[in-house]
């Protein structure tokens, strides 16, 4: 898959909650090629913006329209500047980067928390609602706009919240063991490391194949600078090019 650089106009900036936004970019060539689980590396073009690119999983594509969406949460300087972008602004997009999810699941459960749900949204759109359920872990009910986003693409959306304001009280682990008895042949998970580690462990006990999407601070995104390496079961792995999606059995560092 060829990596490309596109100057991408901002086509939509939509607030999803106080700190989470959906950004639509016109990047036709990347949108045509990108697979669920792959990411794009974005550089701000306005003077005074961040020097480095920042990685974001692709949350949706419209191949005919030539657009891709990311869903981001404001956590620091880069994402703060992202919120100021409006139609007429442009960013530079490098992609598609990394290895995406294996799409061979027959019945999949997607388990995500926070913006880890973004790449899973794209995955659910590709797998389709007849094969796919999602388990959404949130802090409070305000994060549950995710339910609306997933609705068209999944059979069931299971929900947990830390404070019990929506769905089952607790983390995704409060309901996962029960769900794993329901015949899923594949679990895909993306979110905070402790969540993914717990999910992967549970899947191992039940002998269900599990894919995880890892994160580490990245500079190049191309496998050149070795900012993002981690120790795999058999070899050193670069998260940006060997991942970000790995079989959970390959991962030793969370």
């Amino acid at each position: 898959m060829t990596k490309m650089l596109e100057k991408a106009p901002v086509l939509l900036q939509q607030p999803l909650d106080e700190k989470t936004f959906r950004l639509r970019l016109g990047a036709a060539q990347i949108a045509r090629q990108v697979q669920p689980g792959q990411f794009v590396h974005i550089k701000l073009l306005a003077p005074g913006g961040s020097l480095l690119r920042h990685p974001f999983g692709v949350a949706a594509v419209d191949v005919d329209g030539g657009t891709l969406d990311i869903i981001y949460r404001v956590t620091g300087p880069f994402t703060r500047v992202l919120t100021t972008l409006a139609v007429t602004n442009e960013v530079s997009v490098l992609g598609p980067l990394g290895q995406g999810f294996d799409l061979s699941a027959q019945r999949a459960l997607l388990v995500g928390g926070g913006t880890g749900l973004a790449p899973l949204l794209f995955l659910s759109a590709r797998l389709g609602s007849s094969k796919t359920d999602v388990l959404i872990g949130g802090k409070t009910e305000t994060e549950l706009f995710w339910q609306d986003l997933f609705r068209p693409f999944v059979g069931h959306a299971f929900v947990t919240t830390d404070d019990g304001s929506c769905g089952t009280r607790g983390t995704v682990m409060a309901v996962l063991p029960g769900l794993l008895l329901k015949g899923y042949d594949r679990i895909y998970t993306c979110g905070p490391s402790p969540m993914m580690k717990a999910v992967a462990h549970e899947c191992m006990l039940r002998r269900i194949a599990c894919q995880v999407s890892l994160e580490k601070y990245m500079a190049c995104g191309l496998g050149a600078c070795l900012s993002c390496t981690c120790q795999g079961r058999e070899k050193r792995m670069k998260i940006c090019t060997d991942g970000p999606v790995f079989w959970s059995s390959e991962v030793t560092e969370w």
Binding site: L51, Y217, M218, S227
Partner: peptide, 26 residues
């Protein structure tokens, strides 16, 4: 071969970056 350093290896700074890859190489 060398595995390099543990933990976060790069961070952006004003008009630049710090790296501590630790000379990882095969």
């Amino acid at each position: 071969p060398s595995c390099g350093n543990c933990g976060q290896r790069v961070v952006e700074t004003p008009s630049g970056m710090l790296n501590a890859i630790g000379l990882e190489n095969p």
